[in-house]
Design a protein around this nucleic acid. Structure first.
Lengths: 189, 189
DNA sequence: GTCTATATTTTGATAGAC
DNA sequence: GTCTATCAAAATATAGAC
């Protein structure tokens, strides 16, 4: 296991604080205190508070984009693709529950990277929508409104970070399967 | 239709701003500008920024509690109770989409009212959990993990505020029915 | 790499004139 | 009910010593 740099440590601790109170309510003094140093010392490792938010959000957003592209280009059935999407969210969310909070709640505080983030997000949702529509067309999925289906599934998956840490005993494979049953089998004709 | 007081107008405009950037990132000067007055003038109608947040969140939380108590004490089947819960969320969310954002994202910035809010929230989830467990016991609902079911359904319902305003053409009764089909029929044995 | 000291801006809120 | 003027505290960030 690679040794964590001081910069990485700052980003990790910041994400934890951002999850509790949100980006705007966490001060550089709060972060410094959690690190056991003074606020001025943080700037030896990072350029700005904004850069910390960028580092947290963009790497996660790109991870989701990569995962979706792999799923999209596979030759699996629509139902299997949805299962893969669920597994993607469970995996990334459980590996970085603190970062997921910023991705969900603080993306609007991005500055230079805001447009880029929003493009990744829109593209991700477009890919998701196509999978659902293909499933409806092929008869794999019930013919309900795909927007409502996507909203329901994606909202649940995006909020996993709130709930996963409370279930440390929970097996992640088992969680994926249960979510798959509840979210996908429910719309499976 | 009752005339809106200046205080009510401030709370309504504040909720809209809080939805866009979150409570902490909205300044009293931002709010004043949106009202077309100076920041100092706000204090002729409200005591503090914190009081605005209280007004937004607590009234909504109490509305959900009241609705749940009515549903809970009815003699309907578990599946019918779940349908009523969905209708409760669709109704309240569509009537106050801005306030729902604060309820979901800024409750941790409550001060004196934080404990009260948290009690309402825990009680609401306890009531919800009992309905699901009763449904499993009576065979109305599939025997999956009730915690995962509740998480999935409640997360979707709590996030309606993000999504409902984008669908102004959408009939609310139709939305409730579609959500019911996707969320409840999916777990209906 | 961390510190103290400090610059600069912004914040929530108050006092008092109109 | 709104304004101007202002306060006191807190914010991000920098400079320079050690």
């Amino acid at each position: 296991m690679k040794t964590e740099t001081r910069q990485e440590e700052i980003i990790r601790v910041a994400a934890k604080l951002f999850k509790e109170k949100g980006y705007s309510a966490v001060t550089m003094r709060d972060l410094a205190k959690a690190m056991g140093i003074k606020a001025a010392s943080l700037y030896n490792h990072i350029n700005s508070k904004q850069d910390i938010l960028n580092a947290i959000i963009i790497s996660l957003a790109e991870e989701f984009t990569e995962g979706m592209k792999l799923i999209q280009s596979s030759n699996e059935s629509c139902i299997d693709k949805l299962k893969k999407i669920i597994e993607l969210h469970v995996r990334i969310s459980s590996q970085n529950i603190y970062g997921m909070a910023s991705l969900n709640n603080d993306w609007m505080h991005l500055e230079e990277k805001l447009d880029y983030y929003q493009k990744l997000r829109v593209d991700y949702e477009d890919d998701f929508r196509i999978i659902l529509k293909d499933g409806i067309a092929s008869g794999e999925i019930v013919n309900a409104q795909p927007e409502v289906m996507m909203f329901s599934i994606l909202t649940t998956l995006r909020s996993l970070y709130i709930w996963v840490p409370k279930k440390e005993d929970l097996n992640l494979v088992e969680l994926s399967n249960t979510l798959n049953q509840i979210l996908v089998k429910g719309i499976n004709k």
